[in-house]
Amino acid sequence: MGRIYKKPVSMTKIAMRYCPGCGHSIAHRLIAEVIDELDIRERAVGIAPVGCSVFLDEYMDCDMIQVPHGRGCASATGMKRVRPDLIVFSYQGDGDLAAIGTAETIHAATRSENFTVIFINNAIYGMTGGQQAPTTMPGQKTTTNPYGREVKVHGYPIKVCEMLSALDGPIYLERVAVNNVPNVLKAKRAIKKAFQIQLDGLGFTLVEILSPCPTGWGVIPKKACEYVDEKMSKYYPLGVYKDLTKKK
């Protein structure tokens, strides 16, 4: 008997309601697989944000809490400080983490709080209808900049991994993507490493996932995956931005 690939134990039986081709559900599955493999489901508490991924709490079969927009890193801080034995992960989108919750993210990172952030970067506000995100790239069209992001008006996007890597606090920062098989497998390795670092008690970890949003981008799923390769990962290069595990 070989290996069976099916829905991870750490996920509920509820069918996911994301749009066809959405990267959120792939990211959910990778987290659940990692939780299964590390056997931490019974110690895990997930934080669902505001945005499309607010539904995460329906899909993960572990304790979950849904917190205000952008505040995942603050709530995770509180939880982890009073219950260090829990494995806490905060799942946040780009508007959540890099716009309204920038301060909470930076300060949790600089305090090197010992939890894991899964950061979904799809360069757009998905749930509210495809408005400009802090990660919308120059020239990219959204519903609030129909002629494309004009940097003179809206400024430049925030590159979260690059920004956080300037801090002393974070232990591990990596940018991955979930637009094709090799990238999905790499993304899982990154998530697993981040959780392992938390288990080892080393400190703040963040995995940024470039994620297709076909509906928000107005393209078919296949084109969305190509867009991640051709445009997004050029502007947001994949790779490890910080890894202090070797030094520690």
Partner: peptide, 16 residues
């Protein structure tokens, strides 16, 4: 870092 962060830390703490 802010009152907003403080209250949300408390949210996490109360949840625990």
């Amino acid at each position: 870092e802010s009152e907003i962060a403080a209250i949300n830390m408390i949210f996490g703490v109360a949840a625990c």
